[in-house]
Write a protein that binds this DNA or RNA. Structure first.
Length: 581
RNA sequence: GGUUUGGUAGUUCAGUUGGUUAGAAUAUCGCCCUGUCACGGCGAGGGUCGCGGGUUCGAGUCCCGUCCAGACCGCCA
């Protein structure tokens, strides 16, 4: 037996116990006649004490143990003469009687401490060392709790965990596939699933009316702080349900998770908003509703006063940044530069300061009188002391730009508290989205999403207007998950593929198995999937999902620790029948 | 594919207008220190200034190219 206790569990009630501990040397403090050593494991830190007067040889041995040595000690739990109230084990220490070095260690490339001196790149390269740090371990513990409670909840609701294949078929719709060459079928390739979508629908046809899986999905697209090429979904599907049933079920799940894992009681009933409304009020399909600063449409009050930029703009949108009228010229210039960056793409920004004395000062005073600006303030519900920021141009673009500016101001003003959680169902997404590049409609969610029956007649005349039975759960400006009521009728599914520009042959080749299944009694069904990484990161108050994944990829999709991807040798390539261009 | 920021000691960073032997903190090593817990004190070692080229009497600093990394846009049904 290597240890009788962990490094996190001994307390004053253990005083007098003879114990054996094992762990890593976090740090030692050599005071001359005395040496203290912090011994660390997953559970905590326990201080070891060595006294030269009592055992000179042992103390000398302890002094030779560097950081990250793995050691085993025997000793007696004693009360500290000077206690440390910062750690749970701070009232006791171990008077060590024997020390066994289980393994030495090179000096680590960065310090294994809560506040490490290591940068991102180095930490990823030595991820096994980074994972020794408590803040990172804490994040993985959080992830474990979320995934465990997810299973508990879904199990209690009679969901069945069914595994689906990872080597499947590539389809051109959606994200790029990761592909895997087949040795036994030369010249042919599997694809890794972007989601188990079609399989879970087939499980519904099979009668597993409540399915879930916590499953890896793969998308060969560029990475972001919140996007990894392999990521984990809580993938769910239900049969004999309507949208309302699904929203209620998973509202319950999210409430359960926050209650059990974070001790947070979310809204008893999550607010809902249509996609159209979200775009109008926030310019985003995943609005952060922790703060207001909603869009104000200023067309009525801003146009027709001779300011040609507004007069010629499709729309003029403002937001009211409360209590910001004291912004300096420099701050306003910085904001203007910020929105003019190519990533945002605004051509300019107009501001109106609602001064404390009731007057107005704007960047367009030449065109607007005090009375005009008072109208703006009224429209924006701005009081003395507020600041109105205005962008104009093409409706779709301005909404997008204003969304960015709103979130930026929310950050600047500290309105996006990571410990406040505001869920929002966004419903009634459009079924289709016009794609300029390919000059055709794409499925906004996916090709299996059912249109709203009341909009169905528009499908020939104005397909872009057709709404879908599709929904997303947004929280704090993050899309946590989404889903839809699916098509379960062969004819309608076939019609969808037509609409998306598939030929009959393509549709049959790629999704024939699904359409055939629909001919054998497919029940009405629908579902959704949550991004586990994003959910956990949001619960942990982070925007980046990387620290919530044990071994993440870097910005270029590389694993810098194992140095993947990597070339194959000639023999492997020949076996696979592959030649590089 | 694009925009942008960065690359200097093991690590995190500073380095002015182009000008002496490239600094600090931390880590490491040595000596001292019996109650530390960010221990303290004294000292030492540690540099291909990402790489290649150019301008110059002289380049960490300016120019060109290139590689790597971060954030973002495109992309992500």
């Amino acid at each position: 037996m290597y240890r009788s206790h962990t490094c996190g569990e001994l307390r004053t009630e253990n005083i007098g116990n003879k114990v054996t501990l094992a762990g890593w040397v976090q740090k030692s403090r050599d005071l001359g006649g005395m040496t203290f050593m912090d011994l660390r494991d997953r559970y905590g830190i326990t201080q070891l004490a060595f006294n030269e007067d009592e055992n000179a040889a042992l103390t000398a041995q302890a002094r030779k143990c560097g950081r990250e040595f793995v050691i085993q000690v025997e000793g007696e739990v004693i009360e500290r003469s000077s206690k440390n109230t910062n750690i749970p084990t701070g009232e006791i220490e171990i008077k060590v009687t024997s020390l066994n070095v289980l393994n030495g260690s090179k000096t680590p490339p960065f310090t294994i401490e809560d506040n490490t001196d290591g940068g991102e790149e180095l930490r990823l390269q030595y991820r096994y060392l980074d994972l020794r740090r408590n803040p990172v371990q804490e994040k993985l513990r959080l992830r474990n709790r979320v995934s465990l409670e997810t299973r508990k909840y879904l199990d209690s609701q009679d969901f069945l965990d069914v595994e689906t294949p990872v080597l499947i078929k590539s389809t051109p719709e959606g994200a790029r596939d990761f592909v895997v060459p087949s040795r036994m079928n030369e010249g042919q390739f599997y694809a890794l699933p972007q989601s188990p979508q079609t399989f879970k629908q087939l499980l519904m046809v099979s009668g597993f009316d409540r399915y879930y899986q916590i499953v890896k999905c793969f998308r060969d697209e560029d990475l972001r702080a919140d996007r990894q090429p392999e990521f984990t979904q809580i993938d769910c599907e239900m049969a004999f349900v309507e949208q309302e049933d699904i929203l209620n079920m998973f509202e319950g799940m999210i409430q359960h998770l926050f209650r059990e894992v974070r001790g947070v009681e979310l809204d008893a009933k999550f607010p809902r908003m249509t996609y159209a409304e979200a775009m109008e009020r926030y310019g985003s399909d995943k609005p952060d509703i922790r703060f207001e600063m909603e869009f104000v449409y200023l067309n009525e009050v801003a146009k027709g006063k001779g300011f040609s930029i507004f007069d010629n703009a499709e729309t003029v949108i403002g937001i009211n940044a409360q209590d910001c009228s004291e912004y300096t010229r420099k701050q306003l210039d910085e904001l203007t530069d910020w929105v003019k960056r190519p990533q945002i793409g605004a051509l300019g920004m107009v501001y109106v300061k609602c001064n404390a004395d009731g007057t107005f000062k704007s960047s367009v005073d030449k065109f607007y009188s005090q009375e005009d600006l008072a109208e703006w303030a009224k429209a924006a519900n701005a009081k003395a002391g507020d600041l109105i920021l205005v962008l104009s141009g093409d409706l779709e673009k301005v909404r997008k730009q204003m969304n960015e500016l709103r979130l930026h101001m929310g950050n600047e003003l500290g309105l996006r508290n990571p410990n406040v959680f505001k869920p929002l169902w966004v419903v009634d997404f459009p079924l289709l989205e016009w794609d300029e590049d390919s000059q055709r409609y794409h499925a906004m969610h996916h090709p299996f999403t059912s249109p709203k029956p009341e909009d169905f007649e528009l499908i020939d005349t104005d397909p872009g207007k057709v709404r879908a039975n599709a929904y997303d759960l947004a929280m704090n400006g993050v899309e946590l998950g989404g889903g839809s009521i699916r098509i379960h009728d062969r004819a309608l599914q076939s019609r969808m593929f037509d609409l998306l520009g598939f030929t009959k042959e393509e549709a049959q080749a790629q999704f024939g198995f699904l359409m055939s299944a629909f001919e054998y009694g497919a029940p009405p069904h629908g579902g959704l999937a949550f991004g586990l990484d994003r959910l956990v990161a949001t619960m942990g108050g982070s925007e980046s999902i990387r620290d919530y994944i044990a071994f993440p990829k870097n910005n270029s999709g590389r694993d810098v620790m194992i140095d993947a991807p990597s070339p194959l040798n000639d023999e492997q390539m020949a076996e696979l029948g592959i030649k590089l261009r």
